[in-house]
Nucleic acid binder design. Sequence first.
DNA 1: CGCAAACTTGATGTTGCTCAAGCTAGGTGG
DNA 2: CCACCTAGCTTGAGCAACATCAAGTTTGCG
Lengths: 240, 240
Amino acid sequence: MGYVQAVSTGSTGVNFATLAVCRGLGQKVTSRVAEISSLRKLQPGEVMFAEGDHADAVYEVVRGMLKLYKLLPDGRRQVTGFLSAGNLVGLAHENLYLYTAEAITPVLVCRYPRQRFDRLVEEVPGFARRLLAATSDELRAAQDQMVLLGRKAAEEKLASFLQLMGQRRGGGEDPDEVLLPMSRADIADYLGLTIETVSRTLSKLKSDGVIAIPCASSIKLRDRDRLQHLAAGDRNLERR
Amino acid sequence: MGYVQAVSTGSTGVNFATLAVCRGLGQKVTSRVAEISSLRKLQPGEVMFAEGDHADAVYEVVRGMLKLYKLLPDGRRQVTGFLSAGNLVGLAHENLYLYTAEAITPVLVCRYPRQRFDRLVEEVPGFARRLLAATSDELRAAQDQMVLLGRKAAEEKLASFLQLMGQRRGGGEDPDEVLLPMSRADIADYLGLTIETVSRTLSKLKSDGVIAIPCASSIKLRDRDRLQHLAAGDRNLERR
DNA sequence: CGCAAACTTGATGTTGCTCAAGCTAGGTGG
DNA sequence: CCACCTAGCTTGAGCAACATCAAGTTTGCG
């Protein structure tokens, strides 16, 4: 693209007016966004950008799922988020990316070169405000995640995680089915646990009748109420 | 205030042009900011707003230190941040505050009523962009904190914390002195540890010659190099 | 059908938590 | 001015949750 003036392109099937960056910005701006953007496809496991790379673009996920993570020097990893359609990536980075973004499923992203994107932010009234709202929401999620990492037990972590994945509906099927496209290792590194503890804890939730596990990448919620209580952390309300 | 037109007021000693919200916005805007603002003082332990309160204002810390925290139903607490002069509070909250903000030291804050603040965000070009930058920076800090909470050992957590507190210089004294105005309980709830582990780990750092502890609320850095290595997490570079 | 990667399950180990005393410092009243 | 009192901090002993190490088992792909 870059030369494409139309808001929607038949070849890619992407309608720019439906993209998150454009929401509430009118058609004129939408076509400007379309002008500066290009599409990129990623295979599972492919790294979109790595921690420390020069941050020369902002991305929006159109299809599929990405994980973001940071590494410690000895290889310990913390997954800071899973992103799906509508999420923006790389907004916060001035100069260098501070985390790695890697595809979990086949992914389609819309790429906005940094400089031109920044120009839009300057010139389009209300654009910065939309981005502020998006970033504030990410911050809110990050704070919830800090509570999870710092203060929740393994079972509560998994319950919270399943609820979170449950609300991003992955398609119009069974509302009790939660699809987990990421590996157990990714889940473990997101929740601050090991693979083994994730596996064991899911097995326990299964044997307690809270969930069913038809296959490793799909969980069925059998007792949403109990899951909700576990996730909220209202165990032990008797003590203290 | 509210009726005050001047950019600086002798009575409070607060010069609005030096406030973080005004940085880079020119004098005209600065005086508009001054117009909508009021000052509020808080005693140590006083709650500025609580999780769940109606989010009717944005604040900027002028003096002193605040802590932000979230609670689980059974009383477990996660401190999500310590804020000092220049930090904004409550920006992200649309309707209800999602954490409690409580004074650690005597605090002076500048209060901006939500509605009028939002009007400024709409009307002042570049204001939303400044707030976006501030929020992005908070998000970056939150991501670092996720790595700390999810993947660092107790000793690494304390080392990271001391470094962080060390860079927000609390006055022009000894550059090796780090002041800790918050309690051990606050530190524990920030790092996802218990009071006892915080205390023990500080004692260990002391006996290892990394720090000295003249009194509980002041730490002296004796081996910045070793502290840096601990904080970065490059232990065990041999394995894996 | 076979292979490798991902997942599960089991046995054992370790870090940090819990419970329980002491200790210290700062503030108050005699 | 000093002694006491209390809140906050430190230290110790035992324990539990989760990590580590080590097999098995399943799954999906060539």
